[in-house]
């Protein structure tokens, strides 16, 4: 198993922490993991992204050019990373604010209305967990019990009371994820 993921959106959408929770869940699953963020002034109000890799082998490069999965939360990130999904790979996006939707035919495209569903849960802070649920539904690379352990590890203790809400959001994501386009047959590995 080797899963190479890019997660991208606006700073404040919980992009980096989504990556962190995924990485921590990977550790609980006994996988090798890496997490590399964009950092610096780019992040002040602008876009943020993080590359997360989970693998059962030693991880080589923590920065990549193409990805098995892209999880994107805004137009800029969609434009930037849609072309970088490997043929046969997965693109999962939040349609909130998207005017130009993905067009590729050789990848799986799914939508999750994370912003909307997060707000419906009563917190704008859990949209990233809704997306995580959607992703795990499509690619169950880590067990939910390990996500729980990952949450325990990555959230500071003063936020542990929010774990049930986060898990609820994951459940909503799993339920609400929607297929837009299934990859046409490709010969990729």
């Amino acid at each position: 198993m080797n899963e190479e993921i890019i997660i991208a959106g606006f700073g404040g959408q919980g992009v980096l922490s989504l990556g962190k929770i995924l990485a921590y869940s990977g550790i609980m699953e006994d996988l090798e993991v890496s997490w590399f963020p964009s950092y610096g002034p780019e992040m002040r109000g602008g876009t943020a992204n993080v590359t997360v890799i989970l693998s059962n082998e030693r991880i080589s490069s923590p920065v990549l050019n193409v990805y098995d999965t892209a999880i994107v939360f805004n137009q800029q990130s969609l434009d930037k990373f849609e072309p970088k999904v490997k043929p046969g790979g997965l693109l999962l996006y939040d349609p909130n604010g998207i005017t130009r939707h993905p067009e590729r035919k050789d990848i799986d495209i799914y939508q999750i209305d994370a912003t909307k569903e997060g707000a419906a849960l009563g917190s704008t802070k859990v949209l990233n967990m809704v997306a995580l649920g959607a992703y795990l539904k499509l690619k169950p690379i880590v067990k939910l019990e390990n996500v729980h352990k990952g949450l325990l590890k990555s959230l500071p203790e003063r936020h542990h009371h929010l774990i049930p809400l986060n898990e609820k959001a994951i459940g909503v994501g799993m339920e609400k994820v929607k297929l837009i386009h299934k990859a046409e047959h490709v010969n990729a590995k």
Binding site: I27, E32, S34, W35, F36, P37, V63
Partner: peptide
Amino acid sequence: DGLIGQMMEK
């Protein structure tokens, strides 16, 4: 370097 400093791993 900035890459090793900023990345997270086990």
